[in-house]
């Protein structure tokens, strides 16, 4: 029997005896270590609370989703290109009338300007 086999045998035998086979001093030490380990996990606990809150109160999730949706819409409405009055005055007084620039043919020529 190798050392590894012997260790595995002893470990299995100890586990088979269960908690009842462990002396009170060792049990106390294990309980103390467990408490210490649990108390050093505040973040996981907090995250769990938030998820629990969202899970238990469906309206919180719904309100949050609605707020995100409306905020997104508001940003979409307010992030349009900046208006330039200078462009409009140039369009209204330039060589070509504004409808020329809005013409499909004009757009095509502009896109295919390599032909010039």
């Amino acid at each position: 029997m190798t050392k590894e086999d012997e260790f595995a045998y002893r470990l299995t035998a100890t586990l088979d005896r269960g908690v009842n086979g462990i002396d009170p001093a060792t049990l106390n030490r294990l309980a103390s270590m467990r408490r210490q380990a649990v108390s050093t996990q505040p973040d996981a606990s907090r995250g769990h609370h938030v998820l629990t809150l969202l899970h238990r109160h469906g309206w919180v999730s719904a309100t949050l989703a609605l707020a995100l949706l409306l905020t997104g819409w508001w940003f979409a409405q307010n992030t349009q290109p900046t208006y330039s009055a200078e462009t409009d005055i140039l369009l209204l007084t330039g060589d070509l009338p504004p409808n020329a620039y809005a013409d499909k043919t004009f757009s095509k020529w502009l896109a295919a300007r390599s032909m010039f």
């Binding site: 330039s84 409009d88 140039l90 369009l91 007084t93 809005a102």
Partner: peptide
Amino acid sequence: IFYTRLKPWTRMTPAQRDAARDNFN
């Protein structure tokens, strides 16, 4: 020229005016 073009300009649709600004630039 401004006077002549102002009315047709306001009667264009917003999309047409945007296209005109875009192509002008």
